[in-house]
Simulated assay, not measured.
Amino acid sequence: MSRDEPTGGFDARIDPPRFLFLLINSRCNLKCEHCSFWHTDDADKANYLDRAGRRRVLSEFAAMNPAGAVVICGGESMLDLEDYFDVAGHCRSVGLTCLSVVNGTRIRTDAMAERMVTEGPHEISISLNSHRPDLHDRTRGVPGAFDKACRAVRLLKAARDRTGSTSRIYVMGLIFDENHRELEPFYDFVLNDLKADKLKLNFLQPSFGDTEVDHFFAAHHKMDPDDLVAEIRRCDERFGLGLNPVWLANVRMYVESIAAGQHYEKGWGAPTRTRAHICNTYERNVMVDHYGTARLCFSTDFRGVPLRAEGDLRKFWLSANDIRCEMRKCNRLCGISHSVRRIGSTLSPAAYSLPVRAPAEA
């Protein structure tokens, strides 16, 4: 029997996927300069994987890995609240951990915040580009976006306190040229003013491809690696972050790799690559797009398989070693992303340990 051949139960020689990334929409209500989702409109939604199909995929994933985690993806996924809470609710019903990153604009009331911490994801991250309102609003393309994001964090914190929920409330920060020397006040604002549980750092990557000019990446990719690493180390010491030195070395390598690149305006179409291979999405992740096609990466350059029936997810995972072999040679800039990088940013808990799951609900 080959290593990829399906058996009656899960093949013990191949670890099951740990994370399933499920895209539910492809539009946004902000106009972020570093993102392309607000350029799309879900015009083809009639052909998306329907609610029953998403539930089928989630249930199959739970059978493959009862301790797995699901990441709700968009666009701004909270623009489709019925779909959003259906995914979160089904995750809870089958015992999966659910995670989500949103821009905070739909969390405007106590009632919505309470619904989020009791019915929504177990881990909720609000995107924030800076502790400076002007920088966040300018790069997010909509005046007032900073105030809405901060209000969302505060509403979620208050709702968690009222309800006794165990939901984690994080901030996800985008790091680029204009804020990479300001991480200490950024951490101070997030941890001591907003009082979020954590600030996660995501580093600027391309957003656009061969046919579209990536203006933001071209203009804002330049970061001084010495200044950035020194700033992160100061934050680690001041706030007791317990950062992983291997991750920090990868951050330096990533910034230096970008500096050695060219044709930044081509975005993903540029030839720039990281010096070292730092991704392992192919060992632990499945990405399921709007149409129900499964891949081991968000990139469509690698083979995908439509999930049309029960058992298709498992078959794909067990028969994907050709994709894994190809991806082990990939050094694209997305390797630094939270979603795919091999090394976690902190030493404890262990890299990519899953959040504590709430008990499965009836």
Rank of each mutant, 00 (worst) to 15 (best):
R341N: 14
G304V: 06
V117P: 11
A260M: 10
E60D: 01
R252D: 00
R314Q: 04
D41M: 04
A63I: 07
A158Q: 13
L79K: 09
K266L: 13
A63W: 10
E178Y: 08
D86I: 14
C91W: 03
D210S: 15
D161Q: 09
N103T: 12
P225A: 00
D41T: 02
I258G: 00
Q262L: 09
G164A: 04
K31M: 08
A152N: 08
A230D: 04
Y48C: 00
L194W: 06
A111C: 11
E231A: 11
P17A: 05
S127N: 02
A63H: 08
A259W: 00
P66H: 02
L128I: 07
N65E: 06
L30S: 06
R56F: 00
V71T: 13
L49M: 00
A43R: 10
T281H: 08
R273Y: 00
A362N: 14
C279S: 09
P143I: 11
M64Y: 06
A351Q: 05
L201M: 07
E256I: 06
T274P: 05
E76V: 13
V288K: 00
A360F: 04
W317L: 12
C98Q: 06
G344D: 01
P349S: 11
D214A: 01
T300N: 08
L155W: 01
E5V: 15
H131F: 09
R324T: 07
R275Q: 10
G242R: 04
V356Y: 11
H277E: 15
Q262S: 12
D197Q: 08
R234Q: 14
F61R: 10
I24C: 13
A360H: 01
S353D: 12
H39M: 07
L199F: 12
M223D: 01
P359A: 15
N103A: 07
M1R: 15
N29P: 09
I175P: 11
F186Q: 01
I24V: 13
M1S: 14
N331P: 15
P185V: 13
K200A: 15
A152I: 02
E5I: 14
P355C: 06
E212W: 09
D83E: 07
V255G: 08
E361H: 13
N29A: 04
I72T: 10
P16I: 14
P271V: 05
E182N: 12
S337R: 13
D322E: 05
R56H: 04
L155P: 05
D193L: 13
R138A: 10
K148G: 11
V251A: 08
P306R: 02
A358T: 15
P66N: 02
L79V: 05
Y291V: 01
E310V: 07
F176G: 04
L307P: 06
W317N: 07
E256S: 06
Y264D: 00
N179S: 05
A196N: 01
V213I: 15
A351E: 04
R273M: 00
G53K: 04
R160P: 14
A145V: 05
K198M: 14
C28L: 05
P143Q: 12
P355T: 00
M78W: 10
A88E: 03
C98W: 03
L248T: 11
P16Y: 11
R332H: 14
D11G: 13
H221D: 02
S93E: 09
A276H: 05
S26E: 13
A152D: 05
A259P: 02
